[in-house]
Design a binder for these strands. Structure first.
Lengths: 152, 152
DNA sequence: TCACATTTAATTGTTCGCAATTGAATGTCG
DNA sequence: CGACATTCAATTGCGAACAATTAAATGTGA
């Protein structure tokens, strides 16, 4: 009886999906760490590079919208990527407010070296691709509902 | 054809479950923010309080194991909770290496004020409880598989 | 055109999160 | 008992993450 109550108690840590998500994010980060160390990237830096590998010469703002990050996070991060010679930051000539982020040749080249990363993550997940895709879609849907509430 | 390839490309941002988890964690944090502000807590501080509301007078190490955090994160966090008069930190007399964390009366009292938080999160999730429980269990299982790889 | 609002990036300050190190307390084994 | 390893918390340094503010560029409407 006491057990049954505790498995329903919404104030219990283990009953909270947010803690599941929070702790899973950290677990992913720990798995990524050794893989990304070899590329000289942190996980958020890797996300920015993924965006740029899809489309180059992007305004900082667009990167922020894709990754749900603001300039307070991205400005120093991009300065570090620039210091590592992976990107170049230039003011747009049409709109001087915008900063355009472009890959350097080294930044482009890193895409190849990073090609094996998703494979390693998949292996660590120890889960079938269709299962992972289904989970991903559910989590994205949840995230989008949460973000919709924030805007309200 | 190009579209089909891109939806299978493992190096695409939108195909990565880790980014789904990462961005969902941030979305949760943004929903929690205004709720926890009223309690004077950050989200990680709230997690520590959840642990203590379940069992009081816990070694720092045990809190770390439950939350997957180390002393580098917890020591300053707990000092801030102590400065807010929510917990007390004392060295164990049996084992002087351990620091025991105990709730103050204010720390206990905060549990009641926090009772409505899970309800608000549930509403923001806009999802049935059984669905959320199923997702939570899947995510926890994934997290545990990832953590198992780290240990190896 | 000119006052005003909006957009955008940068900056500042606080809190996480973790790797690496330090130092003290405890355990272990010869 | 005594050398040695282990455990545990604290510390240091770095990189996010975000709120709040600042400043410059652009847009808008009288």
């Amino acid at each position: 009886m006491a057990r049954k109550l505790s498995t329903l108690d919404p104030q219990r840590l283990d009953n909270q999906i947010c803690f599941a998500v929070y702790s899973a994010a950290h677990a992913f980060n720990r798995v990524y760490k050794p893989l990304l160390d070899r590329l000289g990237l942190t996980y958020p830096q890797y996300l920015v590079m993924l965006v740029l590998w899809e489309r180059d010469d992007v305004p900082l703002k667009d990167i922020g919208e894709k990754l749900f990050l603001d300039s307070g996070t991205l400005t120093p991060l991009l300065k570090r990527l620039e210091a590592a010679h992976l990107v170049k930051r230039t003011r747009s000539s049409e709109d001087e407010r915008q900063v355009l982020i472009a890959l350097t040749p080294q930044g482009h080249a890193l895409k190849d070296k990073a090609r094996s990363v998703p494979q390693s993550i998949l292996a660590a997940s120890d889960c079938s691709v269709p299962e992972l895709v289904a989970m991903k879609d559910e989590i994205v849907a949840l995230r989008d509902r949460l973000n919709a509430v924030i805007g309200e």
